[in-house]
């Protein structure tokens, strides 16, 4: 039994990282204090967006992105859907959740349904508001565009993995007059969201959303290790640049193992 060639460093690094995450979660469980999180305006604005829909008597539109369940961004998006759906249930606001992937659709439906159950408002749950549109990217984009124009949601929440349809959604949302909160870790789509939406979650902020929104210490614990990971990456970059400049390839060799 061996670790595959070229994977040794990433295996060890990921193992240490995972141990760190689990350790911090365990410390949080024991009640050890977790550092405060910095403000994420996009996440703070979620309640404001839902409140706006409640006041205007218009629905919230939520898209967990166009990737499948094998994409962590989709799962992060679905975690936020859980929060948004509960808030919508609490304030008797309709939520339209659109899906591109057939595998994601039943999960989204169950999340929204459970949110209404937990708020004791199952009678308000409308099964037809959680919709599978199409597996085709642009057919899905067209479907969402139609929903935005016809049903005029007052909030457009785009949180997950997006590609070319991102700007279509954001511009159509702007035309419909919706407050728009978008978030993705797909770096090439972030500029579109920044340009066209009211708030934008950039990269890791999307993954931090469930911890941020619930303020559960055990979820927040893992965020601390993310910061350590970033610091480690920064040290490796600086060290790597210095060593390579000095023609010393030791770090590169270790990482290539």
């Amino acid at each position: 039994m061996t670790i595959a060639q070229g994977q040794i460093f990433s295996f060890i690094a990921e193992l240490i990282y995972c141990i760190g995450v689990l350790t911090m979660i365990s410390r949080a469980r024991k009640g050890i204090k977790i550092p405060e999180l910095y403000q994420v305006p996009g996440l703070d604005a979620l309640d404001e967006a839902i409140g706006r829909c409640t006041e205007m008597g218009r629905p919230v539109h939520f898209s967990p992105g166009i990737a499948g369940v094998d994409e962590a961004q989709t799962l992060a998006g679905l975690s936020i859907l859980s929060y948004v759906a509960r808030q919508c249930a609490k304030y008797d606001t309709d939520i339209i959740a659109t899906n591109r992937r057939t595998v994601v659709y039943p999960i989204a439906e169950e999340i929204v349904k459970q949110a209404f159950v937990q708020e004791g408002k199952i009678a308000n749950f409308k099964v037809e508001n959680v919709r599978f549109i199409s597996e085709d990217q642009f057919a899905y984009a067209t479907g969402v565009t139609g929903i935005m124009y016809r049903e005029k949601p007052a909030a457009n929440l785009l949180l997950g993995a997006f590609w070319a349809e991102s700007l279509i959604f954001a511009e159509v949302g702007a035309t419909a007059g919706a407050i728009q909160i978008a978030g993705t870790a797909n770096t090439h789509q972030i500029p579109f969201f920044v340009a066209a939406c009211d708030y934008c979650l950039i990269g890791e902020e999307l993954y931090a959303a469930s911890a941020y929104l619930t303020r559960e210490p055990i979820l927040m614990g893992s965020l601390v290790v993310q910061d350590w990971g970033k610091m480690f990456a920064a040290v490796c970059i600086v060290l790597g640049v210095l060593l390579q400049t000095a023609s010393v390839s030791v770090l590169k060799d270790i990482m290539g193992k």
Partner: peptide, 19 residues
């Protein structure tokens, strides 16, 4: 490509170039 050392060329759309 990386695990098996096979050279990879990519043709992509303009919007994906920065990534």
């Amino acid at each position: 490509s990386s695990p098996h050392n096979i050279p990879l060329c990519v043709s992509t759309i303009s919007v994906s170039v920065p990534e």
